[in-house]
């Protein structure tokens, strides 16, 4: 059994909300209420949940872009929970992110080659043109794409640029936050294939976050289902999808419309099965 590369123990994150009154205490939002899980090396781990379930907060803490209120995150044997920024450089090289919105994830005022080279420059590696061309090639973009600006590309192409940037420092862990939810169906398949191929070729550990269980099932080996700041169910994607144990997961699985089920006569009322009435 391979070593866990990510080990999350009892993670809690509370946000103070802006005060509504001078005299009452600021209300608190419990974004994460004791989340624990492990991701092993080379695994494809999915996190599924609907908006507000805490999955984005969890990702930010994993990437040390936010601090936990309590609990522990261990990445590659190092506890990153309270590490100061200057000692996080191993994480900044080894864990990279791909975001949801292909519009806002690339700086509109930078050329693509500078965008892709940014993580390299930050970490003091020489950012050679060769490496940038190699990365462009790996994500299926032409070499001259480097000279252009993000707005000259379509959504799918921009998501490829995002992936190239994430791969630049040769990370071990790729964290993808809803990487295909903003894409057209015909382009979504291309990007999913690309992520799959790269994870295999480069031996990456993948953490894939999505609201769409059917996409996670396609991409990942194991999945954690989140609801209201907690993980309600963990298991292999096949198991969770076929025989969901937790009531919330059951509701979630039932609610996903699929072509195959629709063609066999599933109605919108069936989608509501498992919902509390």
């Amino acid at each position: 059994m391979p070593e866990p590369v990510i080990q999350v123990t009892d993670l809690v994150r509370d946000y103070p909300r802006p005060r509504t009154s001078l005299f009452r205490r600021a209300p608190v939002v419990h974004a994460l209420r004791g989340v624990s899980f492990e991701v092993r090396a080379g695994e494809r781990f999915g996190i599924v949940g609907e908006s507000g379930c805490g999955k984005s907060t969890l990702l930010r803490i994993l990437a040390a872009l936010d601090r936990a209120t309590s609990g522990q995150v261990v990445v590659d044997g190092t506890d990153i929970t309270n590490l100061p920024e200057r000692r996080l450089s191993f994480l900044r090289e080894n864990l990279q992110l791909v975001f949801q919105d292909p519009m806002s994830s690339l700086d509109p005022r930078m050329r693509v080659r500078d965008i892709i080279a940014e993580p390299l420059v930050v970490q003091g590696h020489p950012a050679s043109g060769d490496r940038v061309r190699e990365l462009l090639d790996a994500v299926g973009l032409p070499p001259n794409a480097g000279d252009r600006y993000p707005h000259q590309f379509s959504g799918g192409q921009r998501q490829r640029i995002s992936i190239a940037r994430a791969l630049a420092p040769r990370p071990k862990i790729l964290v993808a936050d809803e990487p295909v939810s903003a894409l057209d169906v015909s382009v979504r398949a291309q990007v999913l294939n690309l992520i799959s191929d790269l994870v295999d070729e480069l031996d990456l550990t993948l953490v894939f976050v999505s609201h769409d269980l059917s996409v996670v099932k396609h991409v990942c080996d194991r999945v954690a289902v989140m609801n209201a700041g907690q993980i309600v169910e963990t298991g292999t994607t096949g198991e969770v999808y076929a025989t969901p144990a937790h009531p919330y997961t059951r509701r979630l699985v039932a609610a996903i419309p699929t072509l195959a089920r629709a063609l066999t006569g599933t109605t919108t009322t069936d989608l509501l099965k498992g919902a509390p009435t």
């Binding site: 872009l65 949801q100 994830s105 005022r109």
Partner: peptide
């Protein structure tokens, strides 16, 4: 609030370079 600033932070960019490289050009 954009994701490219988040990406830059995740790559280890410090606040001052983020201000100079990303924020300033986008508020010009």
């Amino acid at each position: 609030r954009t994701e490219y600033v988040l990406a830059a932070r995740a790559a280890g960019r410090r606040p001052v370079p983020i201000a100079v490289r990303h924020v300033l050009p986008n508020v010009v």
